[in-house]
Structure formats: structure tokens, C-alpha cells
């Protein structure tokens, strides 16, 4: 079995990145200085992942206030409202408000990929997008469209984002649908998500990941999502490990390559190899490739611990590959 490690998503901000963004908000530094500060901090984050031996890295998205905001800011007929708790975290996102059909003024990802791909070399960059179902259902929809219609409109914009990101040099497109793990998520939501993900990744299915975190989805939701053509499916196996194990053993990942969110991104204690190994053993006979990743984005823990988690993930993947004779994969094809 081939195994590799990867960080799922965004990073917390280093002290200097916090200061740079604070100064930007106060308007006390020229824009170029802020960008430089963010680039330095992102380079630090990318470097940590390279050192851990990951074939695909993220830039950390440290200038994103939440997963929706850069897209809301880049589109017409969208704005933000007050704060709402982001799932079960002590973290709040600004509620996107759709006042009409979203219409991109600019694209978010291509610039980022072009900006960071040289820093990421010899690894390759992953582009991360919010899922259209999470986006639509976690927003205020004053657009006059139904939530399904809105999600579809969002998906068309995200499809363009994905294509432009790939054209700019991204190796993987990740679409985050945490809403599907919510207790209110239904099979219909999953069906819609699968349909829309397929639209977004059309033509690049083998370079695409759907990720679900903060909880284990209901079986019916997960089964429906397995209909997507995206190659990789990520689940968070940390938050509810017993239910996760049951899902992995009883339903599995179908034809998809599993991405196991087995490194706890919400706690700072070092993860144990045995926990990850337990999940690997449960799937090793049915898959020829597995990705081990963090249970969610790392931005819910302090910066120093996020860097530590990168190291821990790299070490565990290497250790388990050696111990079990897995083929450790560290260079993107």
C-alpha cells in the first residue's frame, strides 16, 4: 500500500503575521509590506511541510479570516453579516450574505498558486475551496434563489477557480464540505454536494479531494457522497473514533482513495502512532493508497503547536510505513 502525509488546510498565524494583519486593518503600513510579511510567514509554513516530507503542501491561507471570506470579498452581490459559531469550535465566522446571484469580480486561487509554487518546490501546492453546499447552507440567502440554486451558482464559480488553480500549477483541488458532518445534514445535502463537486472537478477528478471534518457524517450521508467522482475522500477520524472506525469498516470508501484525518488538529498533545495504525490496518486490505492528514485545519491551535503537528504527522507516517512495509510516497507524480 502506498502511504503519504498531507496537511489538510489552513494554519494559525505566526506572531508577525498577526501584527502584519493588524497593521493592515489599521492602515499603518503600506500594502506591499503586509504582503511581504504574509509571504515570509507562509514560507515558514511551507518549509515545515517540506521538511516533514510531504509531496503536496498548503500555503497555510493565513490571510483568510475564514474559509468563505476571500470568496465573499471577491464576488459581487455578496457581503458579510455578524458572527456565527463555526461548528463546535470557540471560533466564529462572519456569515456570508447573498443579495443576488454571486458573480466573480476576481479569482482567489490562481494568484496564490503562482505566488507560492516556487517556494513549495519540490513539493506541489494544493488549492483549497469551500464546498458549495457548506457555503450556501451556512450563509444568509437573500438572493431570491433557493439554497440548491445558490449552491449550484457557487459551484460554477468554484469550477472556474479550480481550473485556473490547476492551470497555475496546483496539483490537487480540495473541496471542504464540513456541513455534511453536521447533525442537520441529510442524504439530500450529500447528493447535492456530490453532484456539485463533480461539476467543480470535471476533467480533474483524479486530482480532487472532498473533505468532511469536525464529526463523522451519518452513514446515509456518507454513502451518498461516495457517488462523487472525486478521487480522494477525507474524513475526520479523531473527533468520534468509534463511529469513525465503524464507518470505515462497514461502509468503506468505495472506489475512492481514503484520506484519514487522524492527527488531532484541535488538541495540542502529541498524537500516538498506534491510533493512526489502527485505522490503517482496518483498510489496508481494501485499498492500494492511503493519505494520512490532520483532522481539520490547524488554525484552531497556536502556531507553535501547529508546526509541531506537521512534524508529528511526518514522523508517524514515516514510522508506520517502515514498520508495516508500506510504500512511503514523498514526491508528487
Amino acid at each position: 500500500m502506498k502511504i503519504w502525509g498531507m496537511i489538510l488546510g489552513g494554519f494559525p498565524r505566526s506572531r508577525y503575521a498577526r501584527y502584519a494583519l493588524r497593521d493592515r486593518e489599521r492602515g499603518v503600513t503600506p500594502f506591499a509590506e503586509d504582503v511581504e510579511a504574509i509571504d515570509r510567514a507562509s514560507a515558514q509554513i511551507i518549509g515545515a511541510q517540506l521538511a516533514a516530507g510531504f509531496p503536496v503542501v498548503v500555503d497555510g491561507m493565513i490571510d483568510w479570516h475564514d474559509i468563505f471570506r476571500p470568496f465573499v470579498d471577491a464576488w459581487r452581490n455578496t457581503t458579510v453579516d455578524g458572527l456565527l459559531r463555526y461548528f463546535d469550535n470557540n471560533f466564529f465566522y462572519r456569515i456570508p450574505v447573498f443579495t443576488g446571484e454571486p458573480d466573480p469580480r476576481e479569482y482567489v486561487l490562481p494568484r496564490r498558486i503562482l505566488r507560492f509554487k516556487e517556494i513549495a518546490d519540490p513539493a506541489s501546492l494544493k488549492a483549497v475551496l469551500p464546498g458549495p453546499v457548506s457555503f450556501a447552507y451556512m450563509s444568509k440567502n437573500n438572493s431570491g434563489l433557493s439554497n440548491e440554486e445558490l449552491a449550484e451558482k457557487i459551484a460554477y464559480i468554484l469550477r472556474d477557480e479550480a481550473r485556473k488553480a490547476i492551470d497555475s500549477g496546483a496539483s490537487l483541488i480540495q473541496i471542504d464540505e464540513p456541513f455534511l458532518a453536521d447533525i442537520d445534514a441529510t442524504r439530500d445535502h450529500a447528493r447535492l454536494a456530490a453532484e456539485l463537486v463533480d461539476k467543480i472537478v470535471e476533467g480533474v477528478e483524479d486530482k480532487s479531494i472532498v473533505s468532511i471534518y469536525f464529526n463523522i457524517p451519518e452513514s446515509s450521508v456518507f454513502e451518498e457522497l461516495l457517488n462523487t467522482r472525486a478521487k480522494y475522500i477525507m474524513i475526520d477520524v479523531v473527533d468520534a473514533p468509534i463511529r469513525a472506525e465503524s464507518l470505515v469498516k462497514n461502509i468503506g470508501f468505495g472506489d475512492h482513495t481514503p484520506v484519514l484525518g487522524a492527527i488531532d488538529s484541535r488538541r495540542i498533545i502529541d498524537d500516538k502512532p498506534s491510533f493512526v495504525e489502527n485505522f490503517l490496518k482496518a483498510i489496508e486490505s481494501s485499498v492500494d493508497e492511503v493519505v494520512v492528514t490532520t483532522s481539520t485545519w490547524l488554525d484552531l491551535i497556536p502556531f507553535r503547536y501547529a508546526l509541531r503537528k506537521v512534524y508529528v504527522l511526518g514522523r508517524i507516517v514515516e514510522e508506520l510505513a517502515g514498520r508495516n512495509g508500506y510504500d512511503l510516497y514523498s514526491i508528487w507524480r
Partner: peptide
């Protein structure tokens, strides 16, 4: 005392340990 963890935007609290 903990390090800074973001609550929203660029606002943080020092999540204790």
C-alpha cells in the same frame, strides 16, 4: 498561560493549558 488562538477575524484569546 496558553498561546494565542483566533476567535474571529484577527481577534484572539490565550487558550490556557
Amino acid at each position: 498561560p496558553g498561546d494565542w488562538v483566533r476567535i474571529f477575524d484577527n481577534v484572539y484569546f490565550r487558550k490556557p493549558i
